[in-house]
């Protein structure tokens, strides 16, 4: 009974979203991701460009940190957006677009792991450790050291914990949304996130052995 009510309620919600989408530019509102996706569904390429500009960099970093290999990240990046473009006709704004996007990215990464069981273990990323202009040398050194330790700790995290941490930092998802993207329950996602945060905090606070 509840399921039927939900299925009845969904189209009306979608209808209102479409109405909001139609009047959003005239009303001066920034259209949300779902509205932009629906506009692209209607053939508006500029809407997709706006949507892409919002999510391209976080998604790229997510895949880069997740894969730890630049070329693989770029391939997956194109694959993910290709699937988004392909799924435009069947897209329904039933959930947040970010959740939809990162679920596609997560599945692409899982498929990539299955295709290449012996995936890249070594860190290939060359982090930008250059000091910011005007920054004191001591602070710059300390910050670069913290970043280096964080980067190293991230690479050493298990894939599941790293995935959860990146989804929270890059996509800004909540625990429920992370659970939805990773296909796990909320407690599992919360546990993984707690383990990841504790390890990274420990890595940042770690004192240099030389001192």
């Amino acid at each position: 009974m509840a399921a039927s009510a939900e299925t009845v309620a969904r189209p009306s919600r979608a209808l209102f979203s479409e109405v909001e989408l139609a009047y959003a530019p005239a009303m001066g509102h920034t259209p949300d991701d779902s509205a932009l996706m629906l506009r692209y569904q209607d053939g508006d390429v500029s809407a997709f460009e706006t949507l892409y500009r919002r999510h391209n960099d976080p998604l790229y970093r997510y895949l880069l940190r997740l894969c730890r290999h630049r070329d693989t990240a770029e391939d997956l990046f194109q694959e993910v957006w290709g699937k988004i473009v392909k799924a435009r006709a069947s897209y329904r704004p039933t959930a947040k677009f970010t959740t939809f996007l990162y679920r596609v990215a997560h599945n692409c990464f899982i498929d990539h792991l299955r295709r290449n069981k012996r995936h890249m273990g070594g860190a290939e990323l060359d982090e930008d450790l250059q000091p910011h202009p005007g920054e004191p040398p001591e602070t710059a050194t300390e910050r670069s050291l913290a970043k280096e330790r964080l980067s190293k700790a991230l690479m050493e995290l298990p894939d599941e914990q790293r995935d959860v941490f990146l989804l929270r930092e890059e996509a800004g998802l909540s625990l429920d949304q992370i659970a939805l993207v990773t296909g796990s329950n909320r407690e599992t996602a919360k546990s993984r996130l707690r383990y990841a945060v504790n390890k990274l905090r420990a890595a940042i606070d770690e004192r240099p052995e030389r001192q």
Binding site: A22, Y40, Q41, D42, Y52, N56, E74, W81, K86, R88
Partner: peptide
């Protein structure tokens, strides 16, 4: 990558402008 993805999106867009919402 941006150019490639945007070109892909432009190529695969719906060939006709569907009715406005």
């Amino acid at each position: 990558l941006n150019e490639r993805v945007l070109r892909l999106a432009a190529e695969r867009r719906t060939p006709y402008m569907r009715a406005r919402a």
